[in-house]
Each structure stands twice: as C-alpha cells, then as structure tokens.
Amino acid sequence: MNPHARHSISLTYLLAGLWRSRQLIGRMIRSEVIGRYKGSALGLGWSLVHPLLMLSVYTFVFSIAFKARWGTHEGESKVMFAIILFIGMIVHGLFSEILNRSATLIPDNVNYVKKVVFPLEILPVVVTGAAVFHTLISLLVWLLFYLVCVGVPDWHALFLPLIIFPLVLLSLGVSWVLAAVGASFRDVGQTTSIITAILLFLSPVFYPIENIPQALHPLIMANPLTFVIEQARAVLIWAQMPDLAGLLVYWTLALLVFWAGFVCFQKSRTGFADVL
C-alpha cells in the first residue's frame, strides 16, 4: 500500500472496513479503557467513582451552596435535582471526552501512522467506543440511584438509545475532523478543552432551558448537546414521548456530519506521515 495513495470516501467502504476490523477495534477499545486506569488501586472502579464524585460536588455547589432549584415543583428535593443534573453531565461527558481525546490522536499514535497497512480511520472509532463505555457506566450509576430514590423508570426510557446514538455518530464525525486537523496544528487540543468547558455552561446541564431569555434560545438550541439533553430528560425523568420530528432532523444532521468527518479524514490522511 502506498501511504500517499488516495483513500475511498464512500460509506460502503467505511462500513465494510469497520466490519473487517471489528475484532481489532474491540481489542483497542478494551486497551483504551483498561490503559486509562492501569496501575491504579481501584482500576476500572474509577469509572464508577468518578461520575459519583462529580455528581456529589456539582450537587453540593448548585443545590446547597447556590440553593439552585430546577423549578419542577415546590419542595423539590436535592435528590431530584441531582437526578436531573446527572443526565446533562452524562451527555456532556460523552461529547467532551471524544473531542478532547481526538485532537491528539495522530501525534499520539505515530507508530500506527507509519504502518501503511494499519486502518487509521478506526482510531477515532476506538476513542468513541471507549467514551460510550464510560457513558454506559454513568447511566448504570444513574439508574441505580434512580431505582433507590425514586423507583422504576417509565417505559419511555426505552427511547434513550434512539436519542443518544445520533450524538455518538455526530461526535465520531467531529472526531475524524479534529484528528485530521490536529495532525498538523497542535493547538487544536488546547482549543477543544476550552470549547468543551464553555459548552458545559452553554448547555442546559445546570439549568432548565426555560430559564434562558427567549432571545437567546436560538443560540442555546444551536448547541448540539441541548436537544439531546432535553430529550434524554424527557424520556428518562418526565415520562414523555421524544420529539420524533426533532429526532429525524437531528439524525439527518448527525449522519451528514458523520460522513463529512470521514471524508475530511480520508482526504487528509495522505499527509499525516509528512507532518509527524
């Protein structure tokens, strides 16, 4: 294989390649997850401890120190505030983990770049898979907390995969773009950390979107996390049907970003070896 040869940008090629590399992707995701906690006493236990610690800190700061309330009803408990808050944190955590890891993917994997037979396009898939694993752990923590404090979630919770999966596709598309750009511009990694921190407060994680002035709603809704957070809370907490029309639009946009990101990566990968 010629490292400077053109690479296919078709979705058929991508899906076939991912299927062929499924075992390699699985092993690399496992190594990515385990490697993060290698040498620590708790090991994978940190994937449970971390979301619990962050939830406790944010709940204390906002519901006790700032005396914030969601405003769903009078006498709202701190437990309910924590349950609502955690959903926003989980969605933001998924997106931010993928973005922050993607910008340095190519420089961090120079050995793979120089192996011309290695399918470089799977590197963002591995990062996304590891982020999805941590998201599932966080959702398990949320579910256990909800079962103990509230009860069994309503059947509308079954719609959650339909809501989360397009965000995964969109995040993967952005990951391919960041990996491609980050190969040449090392400042991208610093930029993404700033952007994800800003998105934490520009997303309805700590507050209901109804609290935002109507004039600013278009800005908040332009945030790719807002719709997912609102719909996840609708099905998990408020026992409501998801916005199917909105989901159709979001799925369409996510698929476009997914494919555009792959095209960007494939067009750029011929120069990776030259800039490392």
Rank of each mutant, 00 (worst) to 15 (best):
G93C: 01
V174C: 14
I98Q: 11
G26A: 13
I237V: 15
T104H: 06
L178N: 01
L248Q: 14
Q231G: 00
A234G: 08
Y250Q: 10
R233N: 03
P224K: 07
A157S: 06
D243V: 02
E230D: 12
Q266S: 10
N211R: 04
V125C: 04
V127W: 15
Y58T: 03
M80A: 09
P161T: 01
V150F: 05
W155L: 06
D187K: 02
L225N: 04
F227W: 01
G189C: 13
V117A: 08
P242C: 08
V168M: 13
I87C: 09
R20D: 13
F118C: 03
V275I: 04
D187L: 02
S193H: 03
R22P: 08
Q23P: 00
Y112I: 12
V132K: 07
V174L: 15
S31I: 02
V257P: 03
P3E: 01
I229A: 04
L170W: 13
L18W: 12
Y146K: 09
I164G: 01
P124D: 09
T128D: 08
V235W: 05
V152H: 11
G129P: 12
L172I: 03
S63W: 08
Q231M: 04
V275M: 09
V132D: 01
V127D: 15
S96H: 05
R101K: 15
Y37M: 01
K38S: 07
G151K: 09
V249W: 15
N111E: 13
E74M: 07
L247D: 12
L53R: 07
A16T: 10
V263G: 05
V113T: 06
L199F: 15
S102Y: 13
I87A: 09
G151C: 08
A273E: 13
W259E: 10
S184H: 10
A197M: 14
E32W: 03
Y13T: 01
K267W: 01
F66R: 14
L120D: 03
V116G: 02
V61M: 00
T192K: 12
L248W: 14
L24T: 05
F62E: 01
I122R: 00
E121W: 07
G246C: 02
L15C: 13
F227C: 08
G173D: 13
F133M: 06
R22C: 02
P208N: 00
R20L: 02
L99S: 13
A131C: 08
I87T: 05
L144R: 09
V168W: 14
A16Q: 08
F86H: 09
L248I: 14
L178Y: 12
L144Q: 11
V79H: 10
G173P: 06
Y112H: 15
V188T: 11
P218S: 07
N2S: 05
G35D: 10
I220T: 10
V249M: 05
I34S: 12
Y58D: 00
G26E: 08
L123A: 10
Q214D: 08
H4G: 09
L172V: 05
I9Y: 15
S102E: 11
I137C: 09
I237D: 15
P218V: 03
I122S: 05
V125R: 12
D154P: 03
R36L: 03
I9C: 15
I25V: 04
V205S: 02
